[in-house]
Design a protein around this nucleic acid. Structure first.
Lengths: 235, 235
DNA sequence: AGACCTAATCGTCAGGTTGACATGAAGACT
DNA sequence: AGTCTTCATGTCAACCTGACGATTAGGTCT
């Protein structure tokens, strides 16, 4: 397939980022307003072209920095997969590699070089179609949401939404917001404190949630959650 | 990033396939002997370039057909993700999208157009490094293995290794081979028969495994396994 | 200060699930 | 007929889960 003069097609490769955080009790995604065609003026996931000699994940971090001003060094990026529908970009064939990250509260994004603006947006508005995103970015975001939901089940990833130190209630709020359910505070407390390696007590306390002071915890060193925290079923 | 004359880099995109089956009690992967440089004469995962207007999954099925002669129509392909290390192809920048599939017994592969030969190979020889694969294909296979292992836990995918009709013992063998563990036949039987939608009784029986005749089952319509079948822990 | 509010933590208890192991059942082989 | 092999069903204690009650430790209001 090479010696007979046939030459493989070349195409553009991009990275796109699904960055979630929790803002005012709503699961929100980072989006940017596109400053250039196609879809100029439309909101989209942050992302951009991969350089010829650039590793995919490096490109993802670079775009995050360039387009949003977020210091992405400590963010854990997880690859969601490749999206390569031939029709997904009107100009030309573009294959994109999507990444997922969960960010703790508050890093306020600012527009960077290529984007007019950057902001957090509640994902409900996007999933419901109320706010349209460019390209197939709604589909990508939907994938990211599914991935995040299931990762909470069997990994300790939920704490990535929290700050350095957090209470069990704050952690429970993460589950409730991402899963869109209510969880019993007492059963959650029991389960999470018994999971080996999830939490590390700091000895300190806080009253920021009101009521009786709550213990503050740090992330433990376990990345897997065993036994898993199963999402409540309808049945 | 476009109007100022800058043009994005273009690169080659390929698909690679991790196809597992169980052969003589060993988890095995489909590999082909490369007929062209680079790595001519070396074994590799089946795969090839994606056409300019070709969807990624179509390319995967096409390559599977071309290189191995396997009729891939009924195989369920699951995307593993993109692998894009700039050094992974010695000639040029090539980003590959990997797919995973589980095949039932016996489809004997034959060499196709681009490959000199195709065969099943026990994955132990590959993972241990005894048999070297081209490019980063060992890493990709390793990812496929991890994915398959964890998918057995919470999906009904194990039956994809079996024929149309199978016994519970055959299904248990799948778990034992993929997980490389022994499972208690009685507890496994109890759990799998209680999982809603996993099995559908045919009413027929077989004695092909010796001993008392075993009930034959078909795949049920459930794709998720609830509650999950957790891989036994060391602890 | 004392009553009241809020939320965190600790208990209780019934029902389900799991892991370990015993027992009976159905055909093949000698 | 007896034995062997594997399938199928049963038992039981330990653990986990879901649904709540009860207690505790701070704020806040009067």
């Amino acid at each position: 397939m090479i010696d007979d003069g046939w030459v493989p097609d070349r195409m553009c490769v991009t990275v796109d980022l699904v960055i979630f955080t929790i803002l005012d009790g709503a699961l929100s995604a980072l989006i940017v307003e596109r400053g250039i065609p196609p879809y100029a003026g439309t909101w989209a996931l942050p992302g951009g072209f991969v350089g010829r000699h650039e590793p995919l994940e490096d490109a993802a971090r670079r775009e995050l920095r360039e387009e949003t001003g977020l210091g992405a060094e400590e963010l854990h990026l997880e690859q969601l997969g490749a999206f390569g529908d031939p029709e997904r970009d009107p100009r030309d064939r573009v294959v994109t590699v999507a990444y997922l990250a969960l960010a703790p509260d508050l890093p306020l994004p600012t527009a960077g070089t290529d984007a007019r603006a950057a902001r957090w947006m509640a994902i409900d508005s996007i999933v419901s179609g109320q706010l349209a995103l460019a390209f197939d970015h709604r589909k990508i975001l939907r994938h990211g949401l599914d991935r995040a939901r299931s990762k909470l089940e069997y990994t300790s990833l939920a704490s990535a939404f929290c700050g350095k130190e957090f209470t069990i209630t704050e952690l429970r709020n993460v589950y409730e917001v991402v899963w869109n359910t209510k969880l019993d505070p007492r059963n959650f407390h029991r389960k999470i404190t018994r999971a080996p390696g999830f939490l590390e007590p700091t000895g300190r306390r806080t009253t920021r949630d009101g009521g009786r002071p709550a213990e503050l915890y740090r992330r433990g060193d376990a990345s897997l959650l065993h036994p898993p925290m199963l999402m409540p079923t309808g049945s």
